[in-house]
Design a protein around this nucleic acid. Structure first.
Lengths: 337, 337
DNA sequence: TTGTATGCGTTATCAA
DNA sequence: TTGATAACGCATACAA
């Protein structure tokens, strides 16, 4: 029969000291005599005492854990953000707990509320639901930082990737390796995709003689890419692009599969392909895909930094900011023969 | 200037009632007059009161959140388990918080300890580090259920997939569709893979005339699969298997890519391929892969059920159990022409 | 260096 | 139906 977990006063009694002293050795706050410390420590070990974090944060009025509400954990990009956030938090002695909102706005709300109720030190939200104002208000005092969500930043701090730059990098790479007829594939209904296209257009504009064609896809999955690829295969050499900028790796993968199956076009000889995101799928494909790697970890780091900043300055004196992180070009076989 | 969040007593004062009454409307515990309830509720809304879960669980002596320490969130299998666990927990009015141990034994320990300190109602651990005894002890009173880890179950409840059955299902499917020369690819250093092979052997043994060959791979990644595929391509028609059971989808994907690139062998006409896990990669491949789908969600459900059971009966009177969940065959184009 | 006492925001018990 | 009050386990300020 296992009794309820021992408390500090149990430890104090066993060690023959006061609870204040036990608390001191636990936290290293005040100076405590080596002999006393030892007594306390052996009492702790003997009783199998584990300090109660609940009582701890109630008494201290602060918590040492951060909450991260993630919209899509199956996307490795968000996991990278979580890794970065975890590392940065760890450096500040904070733990990071995750919650999977799984594309559901209701769940997102539920978990944000949960973290607020649990009075975590701060909340990260990887969201595309609700306005930032809503998120800020739902924080109700506990600082919130939004990650990877478009919008303004007057009410809440946010960290986003520079999608425009990513598009620019992708197109510039293709152009600098001699490509002149670019096809951008993706759906511009998605804001990030729209931004990527903007960057592609900027790169093209810088190079007279380079042409750009935009092919709208319903979504950015493999099957959408296959359709784009099938379309390209059917074209004559004159109407055919010599490079494809896909708005996402899965899309690029579909294009690649289609071209490879047709066996009439070679990658990258006839058509170069570059994706976006650096999914695992990108480096596992038959021809490894060049891509734009999202600055996931960096975003996580920056987001927690923002949180810590707000934690230090307090709600007043804190000015909400927007931090932008730069993606990076990753060159693989699909763009360089 | 935002002041500290209002407490129950602030609400009580604003509503002109006692804190006990506020607590009652908050929890619906005792009967409270409609008029009083209304006063309290408008005070809550007016002050923007959010109840303090920390004080709540300290006073109540119980928490309504579960912790799940996951070894590899980038594996969608574990995410499925989390989904199942979340659903089951939600049904019992519990929330599920996640922690990513990211293959690190130290992190796993840290997060288990954190959850114990925070006195969550129960802990799920998807682990392959440490013995189950260790895990049980580290729970220190809060119930722990281990998920997807081999070993005995005398000290802690556990839920595992039936890998032997999975292997059996895969091989039986191939045999029943006319294949007679099976090649099993994988590394038997991994216990789950070894179990899958056992099932394959059982199916083969049931069908005299069917041959089985085992090819050891260093790992179960795409590149390992490519090597297997390259090997198959080089063989003559007489030494060549007519079906491949890959221990994992990525492995199967590599085999597929190799065969497709060679364009001398057709899938599934010449060689059928079946994978394991039902990764996204499996349905996105050029020829959609048949596979064995892990019972992830079911495992999550069962794990939380075990936790709830232990929660109800208390530490005594609870007998630790091992629950096994059955994987399912998913037939796609790679095994049926 | 150590002990004592108060309060953190709830829940829960008992009176009113 | 409501109010008063004692825990819950700890941190912390202050006294010794």
């Amino acid at each position: 029969m296992r009794r309820a977990s021992p408390s500090i006063s149990d430890v104090a009694r066993a060690a023959g000291v006061s609870i204040g002293t036990v608390s001191n050795v636990l936290n290293g706050t005040a100076r405590v005599a080596p002999a006393t410390r030892e007594k306390v420590e052996s009492a702790i070990a003997g009783l199998g005492f584990v300090r109660n974090g609940v009582a701890r944060s109630l008494a201290a009025g602060r918590s040492s854990t951060l909450g991260f509400v993630i919209i899509d954990l199956s996307n490795s990009y968000f996991l990278d953000i979580a890794r970065g956030a975890e590392a940065e938090a760890g450096g500040a002695g904070l733990n990071l707990l995750l919650a999977n909102s799984d594309m559901s706005e209701a769940k997102q709300r539920t978990y944000v509320d949960l973290f607020v109720e649990e009075r975590v030190a701060g909340i990260l939200v990887a969201a595309n639901h609700g306005s930032r104002q809503d998120l800020h208000r739902s924080g109700r005092g506990v600082p919130v930082v939004v990650v990877d969500a478009p919008g303004d930043h007057t009410d809440v701090c946010a960290v986003v990737p520079d999608n425009e730059l990513g598009g620019y990098l992708a197109a510039s790479h293709l152009i600098s390796t001699g490509r002149r007829r670019l096809l951008f594939a993706g759906t511009t209904e998605l804001v990030p995709v729209r931004d990527r296209l903007l960057g592609v257009e900027r790169a093209v504009a810088e190079h007279p003689g380079v042409e750009l064609e935009v092919e709208q896809t319903g979504n950015v999955q493999v099957e959408d890419g296959r359709r784009v690829g099938d379309d390209i295969v059917l074209r004559g050499p004159r109407e055919r692009p010599d490079a494809v900028v896909a708005a996402a790796d899965l899309l690029a993968l579909g294009v690649l599969q289609s071209l490879l199956l047709s066996s009439s076009l070679r990658v990258p000889d006839d058509v170069a392909i570059i994706g976006y995101d650096d999914n695992r799928a990108a480096w596992d494909s038959a021809v490894p895909l060049s891509t734009i790697r999202q600055p996931g970890e960096e975003i996580g780091h920056e987001a927690v930094k923002l949180l810590l900043e707000e934690l230090e300055t307090g709600p007043d004196g804190h000015r909400h900011r927007l931090v932008t992180c730069e993606p990076r070009l990753v060159v693989r076989a699909s763009t360089t023969g």
